[in-house]
């Protein structure tokens, strides 16, 4: 279970913005290795072991291979010539290395984004950006509501049309286009008409009154403050080190990287701080797991809160845990059914 996602959205966002930007702009080999390692490791926490393995091996490795193969085809700089293409351009070691570097960067950013998707849920996103403009939070929320709803309705309409013999997936192209247009026309009318009721419902509950606030279920507590300070520190030191040149690297026309040979204290400090920053969620998760285990061991004889109390507390003090914890296995099973039968 991923503890990091229970932290305040601002912390989550700062982390992801930080690592993704760093990964995109700095391609020093040590930094890239650290980032990739941290990204993959964290993906195991966010996606679950099986999914993470599948994603990383089946999707990321091919991308890496493609990058390694493609860069030498387009770029021919480099002092180590390994051979020549049929058109006479040289195949250079440097271009292969840089292809690999680009591949690693791409893969790292993709993995970060997949974790981002899991951690930054829609309500966190709405909260962060809705804070700036309260109206924006409502609009975002509504968009997130309507998109799946319209998708579902499109399916319903499509099925309805199928049952009077107008199937979008059969017939020649013109027929299918006509059916498609008809379905969209029905869809739009339906959407507009039913939106009137939605508008009524909104107005009935006072929408349009002045002084609208935005409710947030996130509270910035001490835990978040500590995380912010520590992560900020690590990030700050990294930035300073990079500004002083600890991350300098050159791939064209030959490979040269600062801070590797010799290892300077500045570069060592920068790399360590960067590694710590990238690993922050993993550290938080591991610490969380450890704490749970200790608590459980010492709580064998303790009294636990009742479900209702616990949820009231959660609601009131805003320390949400992920959905997964709140539903039982039976509910989880029937979740599939709920999706089907409404």
């Amino acid at each position: 279970m991923d503890q990091f996602s229970t932290y305040h959205p601002a912390i989550n966002f700062f982390y992801f913005a930080g690592v993704i930007l760093m990964a995109m702009f700095f391609n020093h080999p040590v930094m890239m290795a650290e980032a990739l390692f941290a990204a993959v490791l964290y993906s195991f926490f966010t996606l679950g072991t099986e999914k993470a393995l599948r994603f990383n091996l089946l999707a990321m490795v091919p991308i890496l291979l493609i990058a390694v193969l493609f860069n030498p085809m387009f770029n021919h700089y480099g002092v180590h010539i390994l051979g020549y293409f049929p058109n006479g351009n040289p195949i250079t070691l440097e271009s292969i290395i840089y292809g690999f570097v680009m591949g690693v960067m791409l893969v790292t950013v993709i993995i970060w984004f997949s974790s981002y998707n899991k951690v930054m849920t829609s309500d966190k996103f709405v909260y962060l950006f809705g804070r700036m403009i309260p109206a924006l939070s409502l609009i975002l929320s509504m968009v997130l509501r309507f998109v799946p709803r319209f998708k579902k309705q499109l399916e319903v309409i499509s099925n309805g049309q199928k049952c009077i013999g107008r199937d979008v997936s059969s017939g020649n192209l013109i027929e299918r286009a006509k059916h498609g247009v008809r379905i969209i026309s029905i869809m739009i009318t339906w959407a507009l008409e039913n939106a009137i009721e939605t508008a009524d419902s909104m107005r009935a509950r006072g929408y349009g009154l002045k002084g609208r606030t935005a409710f947030s279920i996130f509270r910035f507590d001490n835990r978040d403050a500590i995380a912010a300070i520590l992560m900020g520190l690590a990030f700050g030191i990294t930035c300073i080190g990079l500004a002083l040149g600890a991350g300098a690297v050159q791939y064209n026309p030959y490979f040269k990287a600062a801070g590797i040979n010799p290892v300077t204290p500045l570069s060592l400090l920068t790399f360590i701080c960067y590694f710590l920053f990238c690993l922050s969620p993993v550290i938080i998760d591991i610490m969380g797991d450890y704490r749970w285990r200790r608590l459980r061991n010492s709580q064998e004889t303790g009294i636990s809160m009742t479900g209702a109390d616990e949820s009231l507390r959660n609601a009131m003090f805003g320390t949400p845990t992920s959905d997964e914890n709140n539903i039982t296995d039976a509910e989880r099973m029937s979740k599939g059914k709920i999706k089907l039968w409404t």
Partner: peptide, 11 residues
């Protein structure tokens, strides 16, 4: 190529 000088061109 004979002299081992790197040269990069594209059509």
């Amino acid at each position: 190529q004979e002299k081992g000088i790197q040269m990069d061109s594209e059509f």
